[in-house]
Simulated assay, not measured.
Amino acid sequence: MTGPTGLGTRTITPDLARGLLLALIAVANAHLYLVERPIGYRGYPSGLTGADAVVAVVQMVLVDGRVFPLFAALVGYGVARLAERAPESVVRRRGIVLIGIGALHGLLLFPGDIIGAYGLVILLTAPALATSSSRGLLAMSGAIGVFVVLLSSGASGPQGVPTVPSIAAPTLGAFLAGHPGEWLVTTLFSALLTAPAVLVGVVIGRSRTLDEPAAHRGRLAVWAAGGLVAGVALGLPLALAVVGVWSPTGTVGGVVAAAHAAGGYAGALGLLGLMGLLGSVSWPGRGLLAAAGTWSMTLYLSQSVVFVAVLAVWAGGLGSSASLVTATLIGLATWLVGVVVAGLLARAGHRGPFELLVRRLTYPRARTSDR
């Protein structure tokens, strides 16, 4: 077994994808804080018009339900790298560490946390990662994915309540009191939702497609074109429902919800292909974004700090009155500041604090400084 990978030995494309992905995560989470108004489909406020409606449609076809499967695929990529150099026990330990960090995040800040769900998936699939072929992992992914899509058909109408109800709590005490139950339910459901993408990410990691993107531009282009087209087409019907163009009900509503879920997996693959293509060529800012991607967990957690401080009802309270456009801009500004700060620190040779914590807990006997 070897220890953790040093910064100098990392390939740029997965980290670039993580850096870009953080912008989409910020956008996906920011709208969940718009809680003191009627809530429609997918946690969006109902009655959106004008620029808010345009932003909602764009988010629904390119971000909503697409971001966390994409993040999961990159988690799977990382697990594939870990499994190559470490035994199953270390892979399981990584999963336990992520569950612990996710619990702290969910209990203290944002019960919509996704880190714990990824940790649970890693913990449960660790034996399969060591023994199953790529074909076997894809078959497992497909079976779980079909179940998730069918399950999603049951959530076909407007929510009526916020996706994360505790965000609307008027006091800090009420805010924290709602977190344990919300985090547990979110973690279990999100683990099921993202497990197919984690397994696909492991297969992608084994294929070395992201490690050598210039040699796989054809494959990446197929992923990008096919995935994005499918993701937009399957997500558009529910996107139009979000902005009030129509109100699918009954069986039609179930089909629309299931299509959106299926489009999430397709869209995630499309975004990953696009990010792989961006990693295959040089362009201004690529290095800084990739450097920031090495701090992805720290930046993800820091976004929650900003959103709670600025948007939560009991704290900054801006979520009570902000438009969707404003919340989106706050998310993007948070991402941009994080990229600049983390990118510069990473280029100077500094690991993110939570990345260091994960490595130290995963490799308790290994030296975790960069080599």
Rank of each mutant, 00 (worst) to 15 (best):
G3Y: 12
T5S: 15
L7R: 14
G8L: 02
T9H: 15
R10E: 08
T11M: 09
I12M: 15
L16K: 14
G19I: 01
A28W: 03
A30D: 08
A30L: 07
L34G: 06
V35C: 10
R37T: 10
I39W: 09
Y41G: 04
Y41F: 14
S46H: 06
G47Y: 03
Q59T: 02
V61H: 06
V63T: 06
D64N: 13
R66W: 09
P69I: 02
L70V: 08
F71Y: 15
F71N: 01
A72Y: 06
A72E: 09
G76Q: 04
Y77D: 00
A80Y: 04
A83Q: 11
E84S: 11
R85P: 05
P87W: 12
E88A: 15
V90Q: 14
R94S: 00
G95P: 02
V97P: 10
L98V: 00
I101R: 05
I101P: 05
G102W: 06
L104A: 13
G106P: 13
F110K: 06
G112M: 01
D113E: 15
Y118M: 14
V121L: 04
L124S: 08
A128C: 01
A128T: 09
R135L: 09
A139N: 10
I144F: 04
G145M: 14
G145N: 04
V149L: 11
L150N: 00
S152W: 05
S156E: 09
G160Y: 09
T163A: 15
V164K: 07
P165Y: 09
A169H: 11
P170Y: 12
T171F: 06
L172D: 03
L172T: 07
F175P: 05
G181P: 10
L184T: 15
L184Q: 10
V185N: 11
S190W: 10
T194V: 12
A195N: 08
A195P: 07
V202K: 07
L210C: 01
A214R: 12
A214Q: 13
R219M: 06
A221P: 05
V222I: 09
A225Q: 00
A230S: 13
P237K: 05
A239Y: 10
L240I: 00
V243E: 02
V243D: 06
P248R: 09
T249H: 10
A261V: 03
A262L: 14
Y265K: 10
L269K: 03
L271I: 00
G273R: 06
G276K: 02
S280W: 08
V281H: 13
R286P: 05
A291H: 01
G293L: 05
T294M: 10
S296L: 06
M297Q: 09
S302Q: 14
Q303E: 13
S304N: 12
V308I: 12
G316T: 02
G319A: 07
T334C: 15
T334Y: 09
L336T: 15
L336M: 13
V337R: 15
V337Y: 14
V339M: 14
L344F: 07
L345I: 05
A346L: 05
A346E: 00
G349A: 07
H350V: 11
H350T: 12
G352R: 08
P353M: 04
F354P: 08
L356N: 03
V358P: 02
R359M: 12
R360S: 10
T362E: 05
S369M: 04
